[in-house]
Design a protein around this nucleic acid. Sequence first.
DNA 1: CATGAATGAGACTTCATTCAT
DNA 2: CATGAATGAAGTCTCATTCAT
Lengths: 230, 230, 230, 230
Amino acid sequence: MTVHSADARTGRGSADDRAGDRAGKRERILDAAEKVFAERGFFAAKVADVAREAGVADGTIYLYFKNKDDLLVSLFEARMEVVNRVLSEAVATATAPRAQLTAFVRAYLALIAEQPTAAEVLTIELRQSTKFMREYHAHGFGELLRLLAGVIARGQACGELSTTVPATHAARMIFGVLDELALAWLLGRGVRTRGKKQPPAGDDKKFDMVQAADWVGALITSGLERRSDP
Amino acid sequence: MTVHSADARTGRGSADDRAGDRAGKRERILDAAEKVFAERGFFAAKVADVAREAGVADGTIYLYFKNKDDLLVSLFEARMEVVNRVLSEAVATATAPRAQLTAFVRAYLALIAEQPTAAEVLTIELRQSTKFMREYHAHGFGELLRLLAGVIARGQACGELSTTVPATHAARMIFGVLDELALAWLLGRGVRTRGKKQPPAGDDKKFDMVQAADWVGALITSGLERRSDP
Amino acid sequence: MTVHSADARTGRGSADDRAGDRAGKRERILDAAEKVFAERGFFAAKVADVAREAGVADGTIYLYFKNKDDLLVSLFEARMEVVNRVLSEAVATATAPRAQLTAFVRAYLALIAEQPTAAEVLTIELRQSTKFMREYHAHGFGELLRLLAGVIARGQACGELSTTVPATHAARMIFGVLDELALAWLLGRGVRTRGKKQPPAGDDKKFDMVQAADWVGALITSGLERRSDP
Amino acid sequence: MTVHSADARTGRGSADDRAGDRAGKRERILDAAEKVFAERGFFAAKVADVAREAGVADGTIYLYFKNKDDLLVSLFEARMEVVNRVLSEAVATATAPRAQLTAFVRAYLALIAEQPTAAEVLTIELRQSTKFMREYHAHGFGELLRLLAGVIARGQACGELSTTVPATHAARMIFGVLDELALAWLLGRGVRTRGKKQPPAGDDKKFDMVQAADWVGALITSGLERRSDP
DNA sequence: CATGAATGAGACTTCATTCAT
DNA sequence: CATGAATGAAGTCTCATTCAT
């Protein structure tokens, strides 16, 4: 996601990369936090771990972030910005609401598959703090929901989609599907815990995100009910 | 969900209820943990808080549970047992898979609505620990998924349901829908945080769980696509 | 000032002294704080130092005091209570205001001489925190001033003392004399700093507190002016 | 006390005042330290605060002062030099020891009233560090005491003043009176703490320093005892 | 000379857990 | 069985000081 400065470990770069170093230090810390939070979980992660991973001193973290909580919130916001941008672009590639819906689903699951570490933080770790769930989830996450709800609302307006379920709630439900699949996929991948390697939780074997996208497409367009006409 | 011993506050029951006290102390601690975890979140909750709420000494907790983690796991298992029993019974009231599916959905959302505190722990707080998500989720949660997958598989076998999505994954997706709705509903309820009351996160207003069940029914049977024929 | 339990250092007293141990632990911590604060100064003193000196674990301090500041405030209040009691008793031994004044002065300087460690905290260390000077000084210290001002006021009322200086301010001025002498005496004593031994600051050699009391008596009754009549 | 360079805030003066800037930077830092120490107290004050107030970079402080302690010591010495000069001049305006004593007292209290910020540092903050109290008090403060003791000694030599109290100690006692009055006056003024404004500690209302000088004169010449003859 | 980003040692405080009573 | 005072390991965060630019 971010290219780390080559001598991040030394903590004392040459004159050349000092400029880039400075500009990129915040990113480097965010990347380190992403990695450490994903590995250990937010609460178990120590600020010192993040500092070491980022190749900076403990105190340096506090030059860029107010405190450990702020680090998580900032990470969330930074990553959600990317997520929302990618999803917006995906939706923009199509015009018909149904096609937009498909594009959204594909793009979301592709993001998860492509950036599992970030996804882990967003899908798993962020929920570690009730405070974040309740207080900050809204921001970047609300935008994602609004984007999705907008697509659905337009689909309902033009008659392509049923109006049985209000767009807002339909969006939430679809997100629930995506989120649960993401979770299952991430856990199935076998998240690296520092100690023992967990066996995949649940009965579902590893599955393909592309395939998953088709499943979601099938569910949200036609439902599970079998129809006579194909 | 649990009848609290009448003198929970005193921490010293009369001779009369001493027997029931003894037997019920574990339950009292679990109830206290449920309340405290829901209020403060697992990590922010102190064992001493649970002890005070349960009306026992700090050390007493450790006579019934190995440690704080065990308290959460035990709570999860105890509550999931009830959940799974209720869901099983709901499924048993119908014979046709589609009807069973509907019954499952209704029962799940009803449980959330009826026991929001327990639901909060299950839906929100349990996610607080990666460790639990990964290690313990399996037990009670796997059973829930198996029950749901079983219903779907039977529906697919008898031709009532489409086989496009494998039953296991279909179950997960449906659970995702239910879980997300539960989350939205719980957060919309305005979870009591010690201090300021959070406004509902996201745009969705408070909604009725009965209505929500219909939405889920609509989504998972017919999807969102509009059909000319009813 | 306080008799320390004989096995304070072990941290694991026998069953016998456990009771007294418990009751006296707060006192033991206060005594330890007095000693450590006097030796190192409040800011340089570490809570861990106090804990070690008191023979308790670091965390134990926080069972008896809210935080390090509270420890200082509590110490101040505890010691001032004694000081004020002793001074009150001293004043009560006489009836004529002038005799009471003398008794007050003697008692104050005697206290300093008898309990130099406590005096050091009161006279030197307490001033380390502006916050305490401004916020807490008032309590116990105000009482001392009121006692002294009362004596003076009565002396003025019965015609024994001049009314040129308002009693309140006269009290403050006299306290200034006592405080400065106390300071000079304490510093002259050579306060044990952990490192090098300071030479007495200022030119005044060590002096006797009994003698000092006479000086103060002379100053505050007759002033420095030489009179023809003896 | 010191005229601040007009562009203290920019931290980068124009070419014109560069020379004066350079010469005055040390003074600017001392002034800033005086202000910040008076506001927050020495220990609570951060070097960065002083730097900001002085309009220089953090590191610049260390080009002029060895460390934070040195900053306080230097400030003390710089201010005491002025104090001692003013007091010497005041004493020089009179020839009779008693008149000199009165001049000394007046000048000291006038200084306090005229430069409360500096007075605060000298009277209150300087006591913040045991180290300073013990180690550095001597220098500028010893001179003040010597000046005062000299006046008294001469008074005793020429028979104007009683020899009951040795000059050295008499000087200390008088200083105690002045210092305590200064303290009461400063605290009564309501020192600006960042936040709430403390109500004056103690019962004494705000008083006039000129009046106070008369009180001191009365006390140290005639004492408190009432005399029949004027 | 000046800057200010970076450093990193170290302190306070919390809280899960123990164990003598 | 129950208690709850005591423990002490460990983590977050601060801030004086340095040094490359």
